[in-house]
Design a binder for these strands. Structure first.
Lengths: 84, 84
DNA sequence: TATATATTTAGACAAATATCTAAATACTTT
DNA sequence: AAAGTATTTAGATATTTGTCTAAATATATA
C-alpha cells in the first residue's frame, strides 16, 4: 500500500497512468508526452512498476508499458472502507 | 487531487484516517495512538486538513478532529476511471 | 490571577525525491 | 562490423518531507 500511494503521489506519474489507460505505449512515446527528460520518465516508470501499477514487455528495441488495473482494486477497497 | 494524494502518501496519516473512521478524536487522543511527538502529529493533521480529508472543531481547550468522507469520493472517482 | 493542560508555531536537520546530464546497454539496420 | 535508435543506469543537485525540541497561544481550574 505504501508503494502504491507513493507512486500515485506525483502528477506526472498519474498522467502516465492516464495515458496507459487509453493504450499501451513505449517508453519513448510516453516520454514524448512530457516536457521532462527520458531518464526522468524512465525513473517514474520504475516507480510505477515497483508499485505494480504498470507492467512492461520488451518488443525488439522497444519496451512497451501497460497499465495493471488489478492493483487499483486494492486502493479501491481501501477507499471504500471510508464510504459508510 | 495533488493535496489528497500527498496527504495519503504517509502511513501515519493513513492510520490517523483509520482512527477517525471509527470516532472523532482530539489532537491529544490521536497523538497518544502514535510513538511520535505531538508537534509532528499536529503537522500531519494540518496536511490532512489542507487536503480536506478531515475537519476540526474547537471544544473548550480541545480540538476535535473528524473525517470528511466526501473528499474520498474524488479519489474513488479517479480510481474508477481505471476500472474498465 | 497563577498554574496546569491542550495544541500549534517556529526553527533545525537528516532523509527522501524529482530532476538533470553523461555514459552504458541492448537491439536494428546498413 | 559500424552506426543509429531506444532505454536505462549512474551520479549530482536542489527541493520537499518527516521528525525533533523549544517556545508560543489558548483555555480551564484552583
Amino acid at each position: 500500500m505504501n508503494d502504491i500511494f507513493k507512486a500515485l503521489n506525483d502528477a506526472t506519474r498519474r498522467e502516465i497512468l492516464d495515458l496507459l489507460k487509453q493504450k499501451d505505449m513505449s517508453a519513448g512515446e510516453i516520454a514524448d508526452a512530457f516536457n521532462i527528460s527520458k531518464p526522468s520518465i524512465s525513473h517514474h516508470l520504475d516507480i510505477l512498476k515497483r508499485a505494480d501499477l504498470i507492467t512492461s514487455e520488451k518488443n525488439g528495441q522497444f519496451i512497451i508499458y501497460s497499465i495493471n488495473t488489478t492493483i487499483m482494486e486494492d486502493v479501491l477497497q481501501w477507499i471504500l472502507t471510508f464510504k459508510q
